[in-house]
């Protein structure tokens, strides 16, 4: 048994592939690539695969992390090369590393997103408006069901680099905010803002020190 962490891209064309379906995507690509996927023991064996942080349906990413266990050792660069030849279009493995012990997915604390919005915007710009807001209360799914939550503290960074182009850092992991919910909150609090089409790209998963998770394994 060998363990690897793969950093992969899930582009705009496959952003509606759900998290559950992603397991099948990798399992089948591994089989096509004739890579020795590791399976759990038992009557219903399942592929040994762990994702760092589920991606919402409709969100693209260039920084997804998955841990895959193989039944035999494969040189990491060969693993990456062979898998990439067999991944469906829209998925690309960008980086790979072999690990000895446990993965560091539990140290995930935040995620970066690049958001592009088409619609109507306030004259002052979204960033200025955002800074003035003291709270952003929205209905948020929590362990206790749907409750009204102030999500402003979940937003660690908020930059508007151009009209409708946002770079945000949101809490991720145990305390988590989905970028879609942030847009919904902004629409609720900023009357002149209306998002007609929203494209979201996750660009990084980070640990408590703000370091890229993949680098600090």
């Amino acid at each position: 048994m060998s363990k690897y962490i793969l950093k992969f891209e899930k582009d705009d064309s496959v952003k509606f592939v759900s998290h559950l379906d992603l397991i099948r995507v990798f399992d089948r690509a591994m089989r096509r690539a004739e890579l020795p996927m590791g399976y759990s023991a038992g009557f219903n064996p399942h592929p040994l695969m762990t994702f760092a942080h589920p991606l919402g349906v409709g969100v693209a990413s260039c920084a997804e992390l998955v841990e895959i266990t193989t039944s035999e050792h494969v040189e990491p660069h060969i693993f990456k090369e062979r898998l990439n030849k067999k991944m469906p279009q829209g998925f690309i493995v960008r980086d790979i590393m072999e690990i000895d012990g446990k993965n560091n997915f539990a140290s995930l604390k935040s995620a970066d997103y690049a958001i592009k919005i088409e619609g109507e915007f306030p004259k002052e710009g979204l960033e200025a408006f955002f800074k003035m807001l003291t709270e952003i209360k929205v209905n948020k799914k929590t362990k206790r069901g749907i409750t009204e939550t102030d999500i402003k503290p979940f937003v660690l960074e908020f930059k508007e680099i151009d009209k409708g182009m946002l770079n945000v850092r949101l809490k991720a992991g145990a305390e988590n905010l989905k970028p879609e919910l942030l847009i919904e909150g902004l629409e609720k609090y900023i009357p002149s803002f209306k998002a007609e089409r929203v494209l979201i790209l996750r660009t990084q998963l980070l640990d408590e020190n703000g370091e890229a998770l993949f680098r600090t394994v």
Binding site: S18, V57, V198
Partner: peptide, 22 residues
């Protein structure tokens, strides 16, 4: 395609409607 971007997040099982399969 542009319209699908805003519609697909609102429906069940959006990959019924995207194509792009292997």
């Amino acid at each position: 395609s542009k319209k699908l971007d805003s519609v697909l997040p609102l429906v069940q099982k959006p990959s019924r409607y995207t194509g792009g399969e292997l």
